[in-house]
Amino acid sequence: MAKMFLNNMIIATAGGVSDWDNILSSLWPMIQGGIQYTIPLTLFSFVFGLILALLTALARLSSSRILIGSARVYVSAIRGTPLLVQLFIIFFGLPNIGIVLDPFPSAIIAFSLNVGAYSSEIIRASILSIPKGQWEAGYAIGMTSRQALTRIILPQASRVSIPPLSNTFISLVKDTSLASLILVTELFRKAQEIAARTYNFLELYVTAAILYWIICFILSIIQDRIEKRLDRYIAK
């Protein structure tokens, strides 16, 4: 793979200044695609997804049969179907019943629903992992359930859920490349467009891969920082 890449680079270089220029000059449009679409798409979807996930987790933990049931159906449907199919239903399918959405909002809806379903299980499990005595200690000083949840349980549950949620987040960064298939001009779509013109498929796609890698690398550093911050009250 590396050798092929090198060979191609040599061919590209040997082929003349214009190929090499092509790759260099494609870098900026790709980064632009990343800044304009990949990163906003990731951030918006993750924030909306987390809100949805918290609500779904609380619904699952409630005592209402209707809430529990609808939360289960939602999670099961999203987890049981491919993300690409969900994306296509929203963007290509919904227009048939008169709901026409632009590519970017379609992608945000699909990714948020996805993050919401997967993360709800993470949040539910981390809430359940906090000992019952913590709720009781909150109640014993007179707290309402809401106070105990927000002041006592969620801060501890969030610490538990940071590593698995970071996984979801990093998967999301990469999954946003699927949005290229519904015409969102994000990082990978830019690479595809340029490659279609210049035929430098390998160089462009590897460059795209490296850009994703850099983004995910920065994210894992941030994750590490957050974990250390939240770890201060735990015995080492």
Binding site: A140, I141, P155
Partner: peptide
């Protein structure tokens, strides 16, 4: 009712994040 009494638990149940 709960605000009339204070409770001390066998396993302390202190809030570990505070």
């Amino acid at each position: 009712l709960r605000r009339k009494s204070g409770m001390v638990f066998q396993s302390y149940n202190l809030f570990p994040h505070k």
